[in-house]
């Protein structure tokens, strides 16, 4: 059973590596959103530090929205998805492998890029570990929840806006706890509470979302 998990994970990571240009685009998108923001607000350091949690998390949400649209689409178009559904292995496990590969190739990159960006916004270096931890715990959940939405909109040719309407309301808790942890860290307050809650959401996501993704994929294929 695990063999299929590793096979799909390896396949998708290999694909991500072969199409690494796309990953660079996602990263550039993330950087650009953050970098353009001060041009809109003015370079007042106090304002930038205040808005940085919201800014970083909104940029992550938008980048997730853009990248998630391609999560199942190629497999849907070339017929591989039918083979996933027909596999005697559990579809939820295959879905989990795909989300994990997706996260390793996009979410993890955001986590690694975040220190540079928050320092650019004038956030104190002491807050960086908490910020990275919040992204590390929050971005996989974004992928898991978002994958349900993409799976549901798979058969639609242009699902981008609809997808945002489906998944952004579900992202509210992650946004609140993620940005909340960041804000606490910047203010020098303990952020453990918010991080625990993010961790709890991640556990809930890993244990339930794959089944919802599997059900959504079957509905879209029917």
């Amino acid at each position: 059973m695990l063999s299929v998990f590793w096979a799909v994970l390896r396949r998708d990571l290999l694909l991500a590596f072969r199409q690494r240009g796309v990953l660079v685009h996602h990263l550039l998108f993330f950087v650009l959103v953050v970098a353009l923001f001060p041009l809109g607000t003015g370079a007042d350091a106090a304002i930038l530090v205040t808005v940085s949690p919201a800014l970083i998390w909104m940029a992550v949400l938008l980048a997730a929205l853009l990248s998630l649209q391609r999560l199942f689409k190629p497999d849907y178009e070339d017929g591989t998805l039918e083979q996933y559904v027909l596999s005697p292995e559990p579809l939820a496990l295959i879905a989990l492998a795909k989300v994990l590969a997706y996260w390793l190739a996009s979410g993890l990159i955001f986590v690694l890029a975040s220190p540079l960006l928050v320092l650019l916004l004038g956030v104190p270096a002491s807050a960086v570990p908490v910020i990275m931890a919040s992204l590390l715990l929050g971005t996989p959940t974004l992928g898991l929840v978002g994958a349900i939405g993409t799976a549901l909109t798979l058969s639609l040719p242009r699902a981008g806006l609809l997808l945002s309407l489906l998944i952004f309301p579900l992202y509210v808790p992650i946004l609140i706890f993620g940005a909340g942890a960041m804000r606490a860290a910047i203010a020098g307050l303990p952020a453990a509470g918010a991080l625990y809650l993010l961790g709890a959401l991640l556990v809930l996501g890993i244990t339930t979302a794959p089944f919802a993704i599997a059900a959504a994929l079957k509905i879209s294929l029917e």
Binding site: I148, L152, P173, I176, T208, A212, A215, A216
Partner: peptide, 18 residues
């Protein structure tokens, strides 16, 4: 149907987080 089931699980979480 699936979306509303996923949504209803999230309603208390959303409410609590807000």
């Amino acid at each position: 149907a699936l979306l509303s089931v996923v949504g209803v699980i999230n309603v208390p979480i959303i409410h609590y987080s807000v």
